[in-house]
Amino acid sequence: MIYNIPYLAVAALILLGLYALIFKRNLIKMVIGITLIESGVNLFLITLGYRKESIAPIYTSSPGGIMSFPVPQALTLTSIVIGVAVIALMLSLVMHIYRHYGTLDARETRRLKE
């Protein structure tokens, strides 16, 4: 069980983000919850690619020994950049909502008409 602490950290991050998504009403806080879930997923990918006492998969000035997996790291890199783009789009939408409704409360922003 002591070997599963990184997975427990992943579960804690994802649950924190889910808590913010379910119970918070502020749109900015909901965006923060989505970024927390995304961090948890990135940590999970990195965790899956680690081998015991391994070094980074780079040969320049390498001390030798087994290397950790390069594919999960590359996919995490892709995921981080996509996350930045999606967060920018979400925050732009939140700015538009605030300009339109005058509030950030998710309960108040349900009107479909003016």
């Binding site: 069980m1 070997y3 997975y7 427990l8 992943v10 579960a11 899956l48 081998r51």
Partner: peptide, 15 residues
Amino acid sequence: FFIFTALLMHPFGVP
């Protein structure tokens, strides 16, 4: 669900 899944995963560092 998440906590039980985290406890039942294969050990960390042994893929």
